[in-house]
Design a protein around this nucleic acid. Structure first.
Lengths: 212, 212
DNA sequence: TCATATCTCCCGGGAAACCATTAATATTAC
DNA sequence: GTAATATTAATGGTTTCCCGGGAGATATGA
């Protein structure tokens, strides 16, 4: 019988081992490689590409998504499952755009790993149920992400105006405040959200669900 | 043994009958009402509220979501499952904001109906898997809106950098171009998107799906 | 009530973005 | 191979934002 060949990439040896352990529990699966970074992966693939590749995208000094793209392009028969803790919309979207076939959070258990392997091996897309739930919750109750810093009422209000494209002067007029005050709030907002200009502020506010 | 009391509202007799048929297949469930519009529902509830209510929100001449809100407020012990074909984000969001406990598409089979009943009866939220999948697909394959003006390759590239929070200088360095050139592209972008500052540019780009 | 957080407003200088136009090259497309 | 579009870049002036500090007023809550 043909066993499904699987390879793994993760910079944490513990996770690499843990995942390997789970996979060894599947009789029809054989692990053909377990690497800790992109270079090892690319080397290893020369010796033969696996049918399924578990890829962490938070690798030190490397862009895991670019790696995914490269592997998908160079080894079209290899189905890549992103195996990570990253769960923001943008990363997920980019992953699939870069050729990923599946997306699993590291909270996944043996059962979900099994489902993911079977799905992608059959040519389907697989998405972790937990992830779908989270996305759904984000859609239905536009609540700020739990990673969002807490903003004061005034700050939220002003952030809303900024995200709508109002200038400081506009906001000052609308709220009957001094432009200086708005400038200051804006400055504080950038501090709290850890960004250095308006573009990044708007972007991050939207990503975190702080602006509609 | 206490059977779960369930009532139904749908303006199509066929669906009403079909759903009732499925529910009769569950031994621990008893259908306490089957109505064709909101008025009948409100009358019927006077005689005793069910534990679970299947509610279509496309009722002739009535706002099904408002009905959902009213029932949820007046009969807090009744768990409402929206049973409909409507699957747009806004409707779904409003449904849950109006007190819905579950959301099922009419494509649901006996098994999903069973799951939905059990989930909401246990106090959990239930969302049709098909719906979650569709929402997820919307998120990951975001194509530019058809209302988006056409941007040149360079413009898209630069818009991407701007949305990430890069300054003109940053972008100029990365692309080995003059800051003047970037300024110019940025200006053209604002013209094309009809906005007057960076904040609005980023916002609009995201709304139109031009920036990930 | 007293402390802490928030909101308001100020200064001032430097940096960046905004605006409108022109124009020389590249690239495509027909 | 010419016409249309895209890309690059410039001028030069205007406006807005960015930054970091301080300081009084006003809530809010333990």
């Amino acid at each position: 019988m043909n066993r499904i060949t699987i390879a793994l990439v993760d910079d944490h040896p513990a996770i690499l081992n843990g995942l390997q352990m789970i996979l060894q529990g599947f009789p029809d699966v054989s692990v053909s490689g377990a690497w800790q970074n992109g270079d090892q992966l690319l080397d290893g693939l020369q010796a033969g590409a696996p049918e399924v590749l578990f890829l962490d995208i938070q690798l030190p000094g490397q862009d895991g998504l670019a790696l995914c793209r490269r592997v998908s392009a160079d080894f079209p028969d290899t189905r890549v499952i992103i195996f990570t803790n990253v769960e923001d919309k943008h990363t997920i979207r980019t992953a699939f755009q870069n050729g990923a076939a599946g997306y699993l959070l590291k909270t996944a258990g043996s059962r979900e790993i099994r489902e993911a392997i079977d799905a992608v091996h059959a040519g389907d897309q697989y998405v972790h149920g937990e992830l779908k739930d989270q996305m759904f919750q984000q859609i239905i109750q536009r609540k700020p992400s739990r990673y969002a810093p807490s903003l004061t009422r005034r700050e939220k209000e002003i952030l809303g105006f900024i995200a709508q494209g109002s200038s400081n002067q506009d906001i000052a007029d609308k709220l009957s405040l001094s432009v200086r005050t708005i400038e200051n709030h804006r400055y504080n907002l950038m501090q709290k959200l850890d960004v250095k200009n308006t573009a990044a502020l708007v972007r991050k506010a939207m990503d975190l669900g702080l602006a509609s």
